[in-house]
Amino acid sequence: MKPAEFSYTRAVTLSDALGSFASSTLGRVIAGGQSLGPMLNLRLAEPRELIDVSRLVELRHTRIEGDRLAIGACVTHAEIEDGKIPDVTVGLMPFVASGIAYRAVRNRGTIGGSIAHADPAADWLTTTIALDASLLLSGAAGQREVRVSDFVRGALDTAIGEGEIITYVLVPRLSSAACWGHAKYAKKPGDFAQSMAVAVVDPERRGARIVLGQRAEPPRLMCNTSELLAARGCAPPPPDLGAAIEADLTDAQIEVGDRSMHRAIVARAVQDLAA
């Protein structure tokens, strides 16, 4: 089980990385390699070139930009877990980071890499969509911003363009009145979620976003549930919560056998709001 042959380049600057990526054929960008590494070993990915961006100073920066935190794409999960960067999410992001895979993986895995890989069961997708975060993408033609919810198109499928690299994750600041809830079901600690839900309610700003993550499809914004909770702020869940969750799950996309698991996980995340 060894990767197919490729040539590896460590980029020295971002423009250097964008240049080599644009001119490469069958090239891939690698950061911590915690998703791509296994895929290389299993030969599920066979790039001819790898461009390593993990040490680019530009992508290791984090800064406050007005009402948002711009997190460099190559900040690791462990750095977010340990509070090495500022937190604008009332503790949600450090909490989520601490539950990603295992510490040895978190030490190398990066937030940008995880989002670029777009495994629908991975923690950052569901979380950043609940936070209504965006991505800054850089390419040869310049920069553009895209919401994470528009970026993810399907399992391992994203709207990233030819030659583009995720450079920053832009996370809106939650107000101090905000609360969040989280629930995840995995077969063992550190495994990918069978089902996970993140609820973010911010009475002062953007209302409520409850997002369900699972294996088969991109994270799903639970519209009825979000609307119901937006009206109530961080108060304990209303009695008609179950009906709202049900309404968000009644479609052919979700297998009947999984529905009760998702229902329970979303309800648990909502209950966690008040905890």
């Binding site: 590896y8 460590r10 690698i30 390699g33 915690q34 590494g37 296994p38 070993n41 790898l50 390593d52 993990s54 462990a78 510490r103 040895a104 993986v105 030490n107 190398r108």
Partner: peptide
């Protein structure tokens, strides 16, 4: 698992060149 710059990492999915 071994220590890289004093932190545990997975050496099977870390490239030697990296």
């Amino acid at each position: 698992t071994l220590m890289m710059d004093d932190k545990p990492v997975r050496s099977c999915i870390t490239l030697a060149v990296a």
